[in-house]
Structure formats: C-alpha cells, structure tokens
Simulated scan of single mutants.
Amino acid sequence: MINHINIPDGNGHIYCCLRNRIVTFDEAHREQYCSGCRMLNGDAGGSGVECLWDDIRETESNVRVVTDPVREWESNQKKRVRTLMAEWNSQSDYGTDEAVI
C-alpha cells in the first residue's frame, strides 16, 4: 500500500483516485467524497489529503507526494495487466506476459 500525499496545485486541484479524475479540493469535495472514502489516510498536515491505496506503479518508498494532478491522472491511466496466455507468451516468440493498456 502506498500513501499518496496529494497537495493541491495552484488552482486548488488534486487527483482523486476514488473518482479517477482531477477535482477541486474544497470543503464540498471533502464532505461528499473524502469523508466516506476507505482510502482516506490523513490531511497531509493540513495542506492536502492523504490517500492509501494499492498502487502498482514502481516506487522507491511507500509514500508518494503528488503536486501535479494532471501528471498523476495520466500516469494512473496506464495499468499493467497479466494476459490469459502469460505462460505461453513468455515461452514463445510472440511477446511478453504483460501489457500496458
């Protein structure tokens, strides 16, 4: 599990994993989405929101500080998945057992 420390950008936006979109991080968002979200993990010392979720992207630690919501959203649209023929593919000339979609 990775603790994502989301700090709003200059326009008050963050990437929201729950909604998979860039949102305005304001009181209305906190009340409507964050308050009931199982990923909520803190308030980033009063400067944002912390969200704990299983992030499959490579990281060097269990903390990820996010200050660019657009880049974070783009990065989260790429998911690694296993193919049904993973074993066969890894033993053939047809490619690997993972795909980025």
Rank of each mutant, 00 (worst) to 15 (best):
R64T: 02
C17M: 08
A44H: 06
G36I: 09
M85L: 13
A44F: 06
V65F: 06
V65G: 01
N62R: 12
R38I: 15
V65Q: 09
G36T: 12
V63P: 00
S35H: 07
T67D: 10
R64L: 09
D54E: 14
V23E: 03
T96N: 09
L18W: 04
G36Q: 09
N3C: 04
E72T: 03
N41I: 08
D26S: 10
K79M: 12
W88Q: 11
H29K: 02
W88S: 07
V23I: 10
F25H: 09
G36M: 07
G46D: 14
H4G: 05
N11E: 15
V49P: 01
R80A: 09
E31F: 05
G42H: 08
I5W: 00
R57F: 13
G46L: 14
N89M: 13
M1L: 13
Q32Y: 05
C34S: 13
S47M: 09
Y94I: 15
E87M: 00
L40P: 01
R71Y: 11
E87W: 01
P8L: 07
R38A: 14
N20C: 04
S90E: 14
C17L: 07
A99Q: 07
F25E: 01
T24M: 08
T59D: 02
T24N: 13
R21Q: 13
C16Y: 08
S47V: 05
I22K: 04
D43R: 04
G45P: 03
G95L: 03
M85A: 12
R82W: 09
R19L: 15
D68S: 02
S75V: 03
V100L: 12
Q91D: 03
M39H: 15
V100F: 11
C17D: 09
E87K: 01
D55Q: 07
S35M: 11
G10C: 04
R57C: 07
H4R: 10
E50W: 08
N20V: 06
E31I: 15
G36P: 01
N89L: 14
G42K: 07
I2T: 09
I7G: 02
N20L: 03
V70F: 03
N76T: 12
I2M: 07
I101N: 07
M39T: 15
G45Y: 09
L52P: 00
N20H: 11
G12I: 08
D93V: 15
H4Q: 11
S90C: 05
E72S: 11
D43N: 15
N3T: 15
